[in-house]
């Protein structure tokens, strides 16, 4: 199966963006909301929050938000409440080469007004140093919004910023190129049951030897007999059974679950032993 690039990268592309931007005309009249929400998830606070009815009514809670840009004032109420932090307020109505972008920002610390920060693309890549022109500092449910002054031609490309004073963060690929040859094959077999120290190799050997249930594997390996009662290993063992083509059906037995379902000492039990039932 193949998916849209967006579903693999989380990065909105021209196709997605073409569905959420106003017309040239509408852009000139004032600030507007860009809602970068391209997946139907059960979520509707934005539409409920808009006092101008600028977000079209939802068919159900999973609907995609669509903005009526004739009604949108760019008030940013929706941007402050969006759980996905997917709403940006763009203003390119003022004359000149610069506009503003208000974006949700939930990191510490907040920047200061007038501070120069590095504007970032959707991928987090550096674009250019820009100026912070406003901050709404709201703790609690509402998310602080930071306003950046940006060149008009970059308003739809910039979606974040970082502090310039921070060290350059090494990109993933620069990490340790030389160590690509890590000798994975010689490492010890993974631990499946932490309590009893049972390895994946032991589990696979038992499956190969004909142990086809969680319970049989438990009897012979002790996996699942420790204090955690199989909470770590059971799912891995069931996964291994499925990988071996054994437990594909819905009625694959999960193995036994024994009381007591928590740690309790003999002393506690004896104290509580009022046989008054």
């Amino acid at each position: 199966m193949s998916y849209d690039k967006f579903e693999q990268t989380g990065l909105a592309g021209p196709h997605e963006m073409s569905t959420c931007l106003p017309s040239e005309e509408q852009r000139k009249k004032g600030p507007y909301a860009v809602i970068e929400c391209f997946e139907e998830i059960p979520c509707n606070p934005c539409v409920m929050s808009c006092t101008f009815d600028a977000i079209l009514p939802f068919e159900d809670v999973n609907s995609l938000p669509l903005v009526d840009f004739d009604k949108c004032t760019g008030c940013a109420v929706c941007a402050g409440i969006c759980p996905g932090l997917a709403i940006f307020i763009v203003d390119e109505s003022k004359p000149g080469d610069f506009g503003t972008l208000r974006l949700p920002y939930e990191y510490w610390p907040l920047p200061e007004k007038g501070q120069t920060v590095m504007a970032l693309s959707r991928e987090g890549g550096d674009v250019e140093p820009v100026e912070v022109v406003a901050i709404s500092n709201v703790k609690g449910a509402r998310t602080p919004l930071v306003t950046l002054r940006l060149p008009k031609d970059k308003l739809q490309d910039i979606r974040g910023f970082r502090f310039l004073s921070e060290e350059e963060q090494a990109a993933l690929k620069d990490d340790t190129e030389a160590e690509k040859t890590a000798d994975i094959e010689s490492l010890e077999s993974p631990i499946v049951c932490r309590c009893e120290g049972v390895t994946l190799a032991e589990i696979r050997d038992l499956i190969a030897a004909g142990c086809h249930t969680v319970e049989e594997i438990k009897h012979l390996s002790r996996a699942g007999m420790g204090p955690c009662q199989g909470r770590t290993c059971r799912q891995i063992i069931m996964g291994e059974l499925m990988r071996a083509g054994i437990g594909k059906t819905e009625d694959m037995p999960p193995g036994s679950f024994r009381p007591p379902g928590g740690t309790v000492t003999l002393g506690q039990l004896a104290e509580g032993g009022d046989s008054d039932a």
Binding site: R194, C195, G226, P227, C228, R231, T232
Partner: peptide, 11 residues
Amino acid sequence: YCAIGNCSSCL
């Protein structure tokens, strides 16, 4: 591993 008393890995 779990930090909430499930996995018994922190005895």
